[in-house]
Amino acid sequence: MASTERLAVLVLGIESSCDETGVALVHADGAALPVLLGHALHSQIEMHQAYGGVVPELASRDHIRRVLPLTEQVLAETGRGLSEVDIVAYTRGPGLAGALLVGAGVACALGAALDRPVLGLHHLEGHLLSPFLSADPPEFPFVALLVSGGHTQLMQVDGVGRYTMLGETIDDAAGEAFDKSAKLLGLGYPGGPALARLAEQGDAAAFKLPRPLLHSGNLDFSFAGLKTAVMTQANKLGDQLEARKADLAASTEAAIVEVLMKKSMTALRQTGLRRLVVAGGVGANRALRGQLNAACAKAGVRVHYPELHLCTDNGAMIAMAGAMRLQSGIEQANCAYAFDVKPRWPLDQLVLAT
């Protein structure tokens, strides 16, 4: 691997872990922060809505249809040719096995055809480093609140690949609590955003719902009990549920947000760090951003988020993570085009320093 002072590479990133197909180009030059040149994204939400959730086989088939046209779109929009790509990065896991195989297969085929190295990346590391794509990128070290789909984690991040797990969910993650509560309330797919929109019309103090593990003395999370409490309250309301649905949605969101906010502030106090990064789909939640912004301002802490359109799964975060790993000297790019995927890949297996 060349030193970061001489490293100048164009990284093509491919994301296909679940229900979004994303492709992006990132340019890394020397030790400076890599630059996003362009990206394209296709969401499968409309296709899966009829089923109330992601259908893995349909997701995989749609990735096959979308990934090459999106690649051509990004190349055309950035004025780059495929032969200019130096590294092809792709999501190796975690995610849906069939969906991951599409991205991995295309990436390795492109790498072999171009005689370029490929780089299999951890989906959650992509989210973790996605705020570096924003107009206000963070600096190391920082505390990271990673709230993506089935994952809720607090980490101390000292550099690329230098992660210390501070706390994580022991059952349902925050995103699952949003989605499952939304389903209990009869809201559409995707449930989390639907619940958040409805919550804006309700009274967050209308129902007293639990804040699991809020006073546990550690930084772990648990939201399964909250989901059960929402179900119990919905059953109690019976015929009145429709009239009180917005209040129950607001109370549910308030419980989730309070736990995330207070645990994050505790992590900052325990580590002594003065910078917080929030990444993942739930990081787009307006109530969460509002409470974190207020708490961090009061504590004199800087808080950073990805741009709203980059909170969901996307190719830009994969290309960025690949470029930053290359810059850091972590050698994973290779020209061995046999590949595998890791549908279940705990982030702590990626930790290089604790």
Rank of each mutant, 00 (worst) to 15 (best):
L276G: 02
L82I: 15
Q153A: 09
L68T: 13
G188E: 15
G126C: 11
L213G: 02
V147P: 05
D172L: 02
V54T: 05
A2D: 15
H63T: 13
E307W: 06
D29L: 02
G315W: 11
E84V: 00
V11W: 08
G30Q: 10
D247L: 11
I87H: 11
K263C: 04
L10K: 05
L133F: 11
A229W: 01
H123L: 06
D203V: 10
V160D: 10
C108N: 15
E20C: 11
P306A: 14
A28E: 04
V259L: 01
H42C: 02
E57Q: 09
V160R: 11
A8P: 00
A338R: 14
T271N: 05
A287S: 06
A333H: 06
L41K: 15
A249V: 04
P190F: 00
G315P: 14
G81E: 08
A255F: 02
H127F: 04
P190G: 04
H122Y: 12
E46F: 06
L347V: 15
L25Q: 07
A28Q: 13
L36V: 11
Q73A: 13
A249N: 06
F142T: 10
L121H: 03
G30C: 11
A246T: 10
F223S: 10
S181P: 15
A199N: 12
G30H: 11
L100R: 08
L70M: 09
A76R: 15
R92P: 14
F221V: 12
G149Y: 01
A323F: 05
Q73Y: 07
Q73S: 11
A173P: 00
L36K: 07
A99Q: 09
E176N: 09
R244S: 08
A144T: 12
R162T: 04
G120R: 12
P210G: 03
R92L: 13
V106N: 01
L145T: 10
N314H: 09
K227M: 05
L101K: 09
E77Y: 06
I45G: 04
L58K: 02
A316L: 10
A144Q: 09
V259E: 02
E5R: 13
I256F: 05
G272Y: 08
G238Y: 01
I318F: 00
Y51V: 09
D158W: 01
M155C: 13
M324V: 05
L184D: 01
V257L: 02
V351Y: 15
P141H: 09
G13N: 11
L226K: 07
S83R: 13
